[in-house]
Amino acid sequence: MFEARLVQGNLLKKVVDAVKDLVTDANFDCSSSGFTLQAMDNSHVSLVSLSLRSDGFEHFRCDRNMSMGMSLGNLAKILKCAGNDDIVTMKAADDGDTVTFMFESPKEDRVSDFELKLMDIDSEHLGIPDTDYAATVTLPAAEYQRICRDLSSIGDTVVISATKDGVKFSSSGDVGTANITVRQNTTADKKEEQVSIDLKEPVALTFALRYLNSFAKATPLASHVSLSMARDLPVMVDYQISDMGHLRFYLAPKIED
């Protein structure tokens, strides 16, 4: 029996809304340690890795490890029926072919349950090696979203260059060229405006903006986002979900032939 009760139910809605355009169907893996998902987009250029720890749930029971294949589009439709402040409980029998979502209003005066058919999805699990990143930039998630959106109107690729002076996002296209530089400001009076750069050595990488833009759909989940980069390796775009875990994206770089 798998049963998980999430008081901040809208967190699940935000997670699914953040990934449903990148990945259409995926396996949610349940174990006693928590609720995870790992999936690549169809072109195998980007990867989503979700991890929600069991201790972040008000109640979490998983008698036997199980993998629940779901259509993320259908899951998003069901979660749209949950109230923003509803408590969400997921339930699935060990050998069942459905998963039930129960939504309870805070005043418990409205309870609804939706049953979603599970799918058989062959899971291709990738090993993500620990990487000694040359640079990790942490900036407000809204700032990252804005940079990706602004540069998308200029070109379809971005060069992200991290130096001790700051991190520069450059793009060029038919319209022209654009450079956006964000400097470290750990002294910003408001924490949510802080930008920090942990630099071991300067690094510059080129990426397709449409994926970075898609990752920014996770903005509602966290105040900040971290970009971790190393030469000729995928960038890790990391949204920490407070007290629960993280939603991470990896994107393969574009490399000169």
């Binding site: 690549m40 699990h125 993500i128 080129t206 995928p234 393969a252 574009k254 032939d257």
Partner: peptide, 14 residues
Amino acid sequence: TPMQNHLDEFFAMV
């Protein structure tokens, strides 16, 4: 022009 790589080149199937 830089070529788009794929994650399979960086992450191995487990």
